[in-house]
Design a binder for these strands. Structure first.
Length: 265
DNA sequence: CTCCAGGTTCTGC
DNA sequence: GCAGAACATGGA
């Protein structure tokens, strides 16, 4: 078992804020599934325990970033100061781009519990067995439309199938070399991937913190908090990227999580 | 039964 | 360019 001293980090807020879907939780500890491995992780105050590579854990949970600096930029108003205090330590993760693409194709017009169920079934159908669990499917493995439809993904099955044909190692290497707008454009060429999902992949797997994904929650919250009227997605993105600058996406994750948790613990 | 969920695509102006 | 409908599925 490895351990790491962490500051300004909340495993719970990070994992449970709807940016990653392949995990299970028991007694406050988490079991994480990626396409390469599965591992255990648990936090006790400022100590993080895990049985995976230390360097990987730091990158995966976004621990290499200067949190204080990001926090300062995010906390521009009373609303954001409250959110950053309440969910202090929530980090934007840096997950595997392939896993991120596939997971978020499943996310369209869905909800977090169902997305988790869908990616779990994808892993069971197409993933490598690891003990009692199944790893996330590897690149190119989603090659059976009938099996895809058995995972309850509905109309997204054909998108997954087509995307699986297009994306390979080289495609992903190119993607990771690109700047934000280039990467977003390349991602949006995939079937089932539009502006929003492309932004999610940019933010949650490529480290482009200036991406600002707008879903129904963010739209509602931004209209309520900053506009006081119905507002187009385009205007919302424009405002947010100007207002929050190069950490707009980070702010977005607090707005989203705060909105979803509203009323809940 | 109706409405909604981390949207995208297709159609018709 | 932009609004509206269609697209599967499951839970409230």
């Amino acid at each position: 078992m490895q351990s790491l001293i962490v500051k300004s980090f909340s495993l719970k807020h990070t994992i449970e804020s709807g940016q990653f879907f392949s995990f299970s939780k028991t007694n406050g500890s988490y079991f994480i599934m990626t396409q390469d491995s599965s591992f255990f992780v648990k936090q006790e105050k400022n100590k993080l325990f895990f049985n995976c590579n230390k360097k990987f854990a730091k990158t995966f949970f976004g621990l290499n970033e200067n949190y204080d600096k990001i926090l300062k930029k995010m906390a521009r108003d009373e609303h954001m100061r409250k959110l950053t205090a309440k969910y202090y330590g929530l980090r934007v993760m840096k997950q595997n781009p392939w896993q991120c693409i596939i997971s978020f194709i499943c996310s369209s017009a869905s909800n977090v519990p169902k997305i988790m169920k869908n990616v779990g079934l994808l892993s069971k159908q197409f993933g490598e067995k690891s003990g009692e669990n199944y790893l996330f499917p590897k690149i190119g493995e989603l090659n059976d439309l009938k099996k895809l439809k058995n995972c309850g993904v509905g109309f997204r099955a054909k998108y997954l199938h087509e995307t699986n044909k297009i994306v390979d190692e080289e495609w992903l290497i190119d993607l990771q070399k690109m700047n934000y707008l280039e990467a977003k454009q390349k991602l949006a060429e995939l079937p089932g991937v539009g502006e929003k999902i492309a932004d999610c992949v940019c933010l949650f797997s490529l480290g482009h913190y200036d991406a600002f994904p707008v879903d129904v929650w963010i739209k509602r919250i931004m209209e309520q908090t900053y506009f006081g009227r119905k507002t187009s997605n385009k205007e919302i993105v424009g405002f947010a990227r100007n207002y929050f600058g190069d950490c707009a996406g980070y702010a977005q994750q607090y707005l989203y999580h705060g909105g979803r948790m509203n009323g809940k613990t």
